[in-house]
């Protein structure tokens, strides 16, 4: 399977070239266009994996969809085009036996070998960081595709690194994250507009996004006319 990122970085779509028998699991609604010899199967479980209803429900809590779409090519040289919901970039993350913890709405697609599960990140992360309590956990060996709001950039953390809430796309499970104050005093943190931030500790890869969906929502929400 080959892939190509189109129209980077502000309105990225991913084009896949699949050979007969190859497959891809995508977020519901991600497909833009596809060749005729591709079939789509919608289920609540990962391809070949267990789970079903429970995993589907857990995905819903993480901000993902209950269902997953599996695309399978039945002839060589089939094209599949997918894109994210929000305006922004996509990134390819080759998973080689590790685990990547992905913020719910950033998971876009994965090859069939990757196990997709949900992981609990605690009440405090949901209450204070504006992130969800459950995150999507991807593990195994395969190809993973993530999307972002705005640009996406990887950071190799070794030690400590601080990211503002709402800007996390994904992080390797070797990183630990905690909610903390942006500056030394809580009042200063709040007055500085940064409020609470996510502090990463350890060694591993972290993906961040340049924009933050809740901030856009807070900006637009009050200006919208009630229905």
């Amino acid at each position: 399977m080959k892939h190509e990122m189109l129209c980077r970085p502000s309105a990225t779509a991913v084009r896949f070239a699949l050979d007969a028998g190859e497959g891809l699991t995508c977020e519901v609604g991600a497909m833009i266009a596809m060749s005729s010899a591709l079939t789509v199967e919608t289920t609540s479980r990962s391809r070949g994996g267990g789970g079903g209803m429970i995993k589907g429900l857990k995905r819903m809590f993480s901000g993902e969809n209950f269902f997953l779409n599996h695309f399978t090519a039945h002839q060589p040289n089939q094209t599949l085009l997918i894109g994210p919901t929000m305006m922004g970039d996509c990134v390819h993350h080759p998973l080689r036996g590790g685990t990547l913890v992905v913020q719910g709405s950033s998971w876009l697609a994965a090859t069939d070998e990757i196990e997709i599960d949900t992981t609990w990140q605690g009440f405090s992360s949901a209450l204070f960081s504006g992130e969800s309590m459950f995150w999507v956990k991807c593990s195994g060996v395969g190809e993973l595709f993530l999307s972002s709001f705005g640009a996406i950039y990887p950071i190799r953390v070794d030690g400590e690194y601080t990211v503002d809430t709402g800007h996390i796309v994904a992080f390797e499970d070797t990183l630990r994250f905690q909610i903390g104050k942006a500056s030394r005093s809580l009042i200063g943190s709040l007055l500085g507009g940064e409020g609470l931030v996510c502090k990463f500790q350890g060694q591993g890869l972290l993906y961040c996004q340049s924009h933050n969906p809740p901030s856009l929502g807070q900006l637009l929400g009050p200006k919208l006319k009630p229905a």
């Binding site: 992981t119 992080f171 070797t174 994250f177 350890g202």
Partner: peptide, 20 residues
């Protein structure tokens, strides 16, 4: 060292931290 997303992952490093 203890850490990771779960807080229960064990990290073993050599003296110059070049290998974990």
């Amino acid at each position: 060292d203890l850490g990771g997303a779960s807080g229960k992952m064990v990290f073993c490093r050599n003296a110059d931290r070049s290998l974990t």
